[in-house]
């Protein structure tokens, strides 16, 4: 029996599996609000409900879910590969990154003026 997965928004490049998946299994991906379905073969095991790529994604590319940017790829990810903390990272709250790299992140650049302020409140 084939697995099913949910793509929340048509712009998304990841889907959430419904249930758990094994490498080689075929997944039917339904996009919310759209009738067409997409069939994808898993290249790796995917734990219950976790994400996998529905398109090839290049290192540094935005990961899109809900039609919005939820982070960036830390390496190339192929369609059907498991997507989680091992291959994507956050753009936000990254005190570990240098100031230069932080300022370069698109979502953070507008914050440069207030970046000197210490703790909140």
């Amino acid at each position: 029996m084939s697995l099913t997965a949910l793509i929340v928004h048509r712009d998304d490049n990841v889907a959430n599996l419904i249930g758990a998946g094994k490498k080689g299994q075929s997944v039917v991906c339904a996009t919310e609000g759209a009738s067409q379905q997409l069939a994808i073969r898993l290249l790796e095991d995917v734990p219950a409900n976790h994400k996998f790529a529905v398109r090839d994604i290049k290192a540094g590319d935005a990961i899109i879910k809900y039609g919005l940017n939820i982070g960036r790829a830390s390496c190339d990810i192929r369609k059907g590969q498991y997507v989680h903390v091992h291959n994507i990272e956050s753009n936000r709250g990254r005190g570990d990154l240098s100031g230069k790299r932080r300022a370069a992140g698109s979502s953070l650049s507008r914050r440069k003026t207030s970046a000197k302020s210490k703790t909140a409140r």
Binding site: N69, V83, D96
Partner: peptide, 22 residues
């Protein structure tokens, strides 16, 4: 520091949430 582990928390990550944005 990278707040990952605190946000998302360890149980969030175990549950498949990868980033604070997600």
């Amino acid at each position: 520091v990278d707040m990952r582990g605190s946000q998302p928390t360890g149980d969030n990550i175990a549950g498949g949430l990868s980033t604070i944005e997600e």
